[in-house]
Simulated scan of single mutants.
Amino acid sequence: MDHSAALRETGWEVRQRIRRGEWTRPTGGMAPGYVQANLAILPRDLAADFQRFCALNPKPCPLLASSEPGDPSLPSLGRDIDIRTDIGTYRVWRDGVMVQEVHDITELWRDDLVAFLLGCSHSFEEALLADGLKLRHFDEGKAVPVYTTDVPTVPAGPFHGPLVVSMRPFTPAEAIRAIQITSRFPSVHGAPVHIGKPEMIGIHDMSKVDAGDAVTVAEDELPLFWACGVTPQAVVAASKPPFCITHAPGCMLVTDLMNSRLAVF
């Protein structure tokens, strides 16, 4: 089954394909209408501090759900979710260093691990497309460009590090509409955190991305920067917890929640 088939699938059906090992790549555009989520898994002794970090940094880390220690299910996000198998590619971190990428973390699972699921920009991108706005990375067949800024997050316990952003270019008129639309979705990053002048947030060469792909920005367009769910990975690299598991960029948990229910107005 190819990617186009996933455009007609539900979140549950996509998870089953991922669990069977049939899909290990990014999930952008799959199961339209369904909320996708970023992942961070940490030991229980760090869980309270990370939850507080999310509360203090709601733009990059909008917490959708967390698991009970040692429990791989997340019933509030969907039926039969197993966080050990239902993401296409995971990253394993030790002491702040990403040591491997794997497609199943069953053998790494422990009774003290807590999974945190965070809102993802795939949800607000669907709202932008529904309004007729074009997304350059889609048009160019690329992944959204992601940059690490020099803007610090608010620290909590041992957790600290830089804000990571994703960028989408729009004309000024389109930018106003994009801000209005994404403001309705605070649980999936909400409105942009910066507009134009990337050097003001430490981005000096937009052709050099930290994840995803560089895209064209026309002379009559402004780059809009949204807080990004890759931020926890930059925080893990800076904070160096002994053990952590995240999703690989773009490889999300596809839930049973509907994007339309995330809008606050």
Score class of each variant (00 low, 15 high):
L63F: 03
L64Q: 02
L64C: 10
S66N: 05
S66R: 12
S67T: 15
S67R: 08
S67H: 09
S67N: 05
E68C: 04
E68H: 08
P69W: 10
P69E: 07
P69Y: 09
G70P: 13
G70V: 09
D71C: 12
D71L: 12
D71F: 07
P72Y: 11
S73M: 03
S73A: 15
S73Y: 04
S73W: 05
S73V: 06
S73G: 13
S73F: 03
L74N: 05
L74G: 09
L74H: 07
P75H: 10
P75F: 09
P75G: 00
S76M: 11
S76R: 13
S76Q: 14
L77E: 05
L77N: 02
L77F: 08
L77C: 06
G78Q: 04
G78Y: 01
G78V: 06
R79Q: 14
D80M: 04
D80W: 07
I81W: 04
I81F: 05
D82M: 10
D82T: 12
I83H: 01
I83W: 00
I83G: 02
I83F: 03
I83R: 05
I83P: 01
R84D: 01
R84S: 00
T85N: 02
T85S: 12
T85K: 15
T85C: 11
D86W: 06
D86V: 07
I87D: 01
I87V: 15
I87C: 11
I87S: 10
G88Y: 08
G88P: 00
G88K: 04
T89C: 08
T89W: 00
T89D: 04
T89M: 07
T89N: 07
T89K: 13
Y90S: 06
Y90F: 14
Y90P: 02
R91S: 13
V92L: 14
V92I: 15
V92C: 09
W93R: 13
W93M: 13
W93P: 09
W93L: 12
R94M: 12
R94K: 14
R94I: 05
R94E: 15
D95N: 15
D95P: 01
G96Q: 03
G96N: 02
G96I: 13
G96A: 06
V97M: 05
V97I: 14
V97P: 01
V97E: 14
V97G: 01
V97R: 15
